[in-house]
Amino acid sequence: MAGPQALLWSINTRAVLEAVDAQGPTGRPELVRATGLSKTTVSQALQELLARGVVREAGLDTERRGPAATLYETAPGSGHAIGIDVAAERVSAVLVDLAGAEVCRAERELGGAGAERAVPAGGPAAGGFAGIVAELAAEVAAEVAAEVAGGRTVGEAVVGVPAIVARDGKSIRASRGLPGAATLGVELQARLPYPILLENDVNLAAVAEQRRGAGRGIEDFVLLRVGAGLGAGVVIGGRLHRGFAGGAGEVGFLPHPATALGSEVLNARGIAREQGFEGSPAELLAMASAGEPVAIDAADAIARRLAHVIGAIALVIEPELFVVGGEGTEVLLEPVRRHLLADAPELAVDVTGSGVPGGAVVQGAALVAHEHVRERVFTEATT
């Protein structure tokens, strides 16, 4: 009977922990109703979870009749996760606790585009790009270093990269100007004392959009992120679609009559130059938003190319919604809709802007890392 009894205890305790996490701060009567377990079973499970440090008391409920009841909630300090965004201009990191709340964040500005960005002024003398990422992760992790005795420190870091990441989440199949891409995962894992998971940056932005932005409650949507290049995060049936080998969403290389086969369908900087504008895509879009005529013409050319990409995707998977993300891309929404209506009026296409405030990639990375850490901590606490 020892085996089945242990299994039953694990199932019951996990049910109580999940209910605390979903409803907390909450009392025992609410946990009894939520789980369908007896008062005695719930009380025993709470005592064990308190002893293991994954649940804590959260004050008293003085509003109900009778004696004040103790409230319980998940202990935020019992696990932490880090999300990291490796972008062209900067590396950003955010630390979240087991409740999913942000504890702190840090950023490191990079020197410029291309390989030279790997070692900015004042950066580490050795270690290159992996050293910068590891250093930033260590900076935010230091916020919880003092909790080693009373809780758990970082359980995992998820790193968003502008690259095609293999199914193992450790190696990179192909990248766009990412210094040391081939060995980044190995070098990071050697430098940091917790598991590292690599993921495509646009995929992570799509996760953030699904949980916190325009994709909430939508089963099928595509996030198109416009920056130095173009990438897509595809959500089908409520799940991120990574493809067989991690390469789904590389729509930046779709064939187009205006480009050579194998070249980028939407190179914002190149299109802007053709229209007589010199500057970064973000600068272009900001000036278009401010009403600069040359910038408006360049933004319109980008929007038409983007509309053609949307049309091609719609013909294949016909999602409910397309979300256009990236810095300053709000100015592209109206011309994209206009070009779709003019060039492909028969398509059922709805286009909107991002609903994620702040950095979507780093938020998505933190959400994925938190999900993994939460599962690990909950499993350890109930077995």
Results as ranks from 00 to 15, higher is better:
Gln5Ser: 14
Ala6Asp: 09
Leu7Arg: 14
Ile11Lys: 11
Ile11Ser: 04
Thr13Lys: 00
Val16Met: 07
Val16Gln: 08
Leu17Met: 14
Ala19Trp: 09
Asp21Arg: 10
Gly27Trp: 03
Val32Tyr: 01
Ala34Gln: 10
Thr35Glu: 06
Gly36Ile: 13
Gly36Ser: 12
Thr40Asn: 07
Thr41Tyr: 08
Ala51Arg: 02
Ala58His: 07
Asp61Phe: 13
Thr62Asn: 02
Gly66Phe: 09
Leu71Tyr: 06
Leu71Ser: 08
Tyr72Arg: 14
Ala75Asn: 12
Ser78Lys: 00
Ala81Val: 14
Val86Glu: 06
Ser92Tyr: 03
Ser92Trp: 01
Ala93Ser: 13
Ala93Asn: 10
Val94Arg: 14
Leu98Ala: 05
Ala99Glu: 03
Ala101Val: 07
Glu107Asp: 14
Glu109Trp: 12
Ala115Arg: 10
Glu116Ser: 03
Arg117Thr: 09
Arg117Glu: 02
Arg117Val: 07
Ala121Phe: 10
Gly123His: 07
Gly123Val: 06
Pro124Tyr: 09
Ala125Thr: 11
Ala125Ile: 08
Ala126Leu: 13
Gly128Glu: 03
Phe129His: 12
Phe129Val: 04
Ala130Gln: 09
Leu136Lys: 05
Ala137Arg: 00
Glu139Asn: 05
Ala141Glu: 01
Gly150His: 07
Gly150Tyr: 06
Gly150Trp: 02
Ala157Pro: 00
Val159Gln: 04
Pro162Glu: 06
Val165Ile: 09
Val165Pro: 08
Arg167Phe: 08
Lys170Trp: 00
Ser175Ala: 15
Leu178Trp: 08
Thr183Met: 06
Thr183Leu: 08
Thr183Gln: 10
Leu184Gln: 07
Leu184Trp: 04
Leu188Met: 12
Arg191Ile: 04
Tyr194Asp: 00
Pro195Cys: 15
Pro195His: 13
Leu197Gly: 01
Leu197Asp: 04
Asp201Lys: 08
Val207Ala: 09
Glu209Met: 02
Gln210Tyr: 05
Arg212Ile: 00
Gly217Met: 07
Ile218Val: 15
Phe221Arg: 08
Leu223Thr: 12
Leu224Ser: 01
Leu224Gln: 03
Arg225Ser: 13
Ala232Lys: 14
Val234Gly: 10
Gly237Thr: 13
Gly238Pro: 06
Phe244Asp: 06
Phe244Cys: 05
Gly246Gln: 02
Gly246Val: 09
Gly247Met: 10
Val251Asn: 04
Ala258Asp: 14
Ser263Asn: 11
Val265Pro: 02
Asn267Pro: 03
Gly270Cys: 01
Ile271Gln: 05
Ile271Lys: 03
Ile271His: 01
Arg273Trp: 13
Arg273Asn: 12
Gly276Ala: 11
Ala282Asn: 03
Ala286Cys: 11
Val294Lys: 15
Ala298Ser: 10
Ala303Ser: 15
Arg304Ser: 10
Ala307Met: 11
Val309Met: 13
Val309Asp: 09
Ala314Asn: 14
Glu320Asn: 01
Glu320His: 01
Leu321Lys: 04
Val324Leu: 15
Gly325Pro: 00
Gly326Asn: 03
Gly328Glu: 05
Pro335Thr: 08
Glu346Lys: 14
Leu347Ala: 09
Asp350Thr: 15
Thr352Met: 03
Pro357Val: 15
Pro357Leu: 14
Gly358Lys: 10
Gly359Thr: 03
Gly359Met: 06
Ala360Cys: 03
Gln363His: 06
His372Glu: 11
Val373Thr: 12
Val373Cys: 11
Arg376Pro: 00
Val377Pro: 04
Thr379Ala: 15
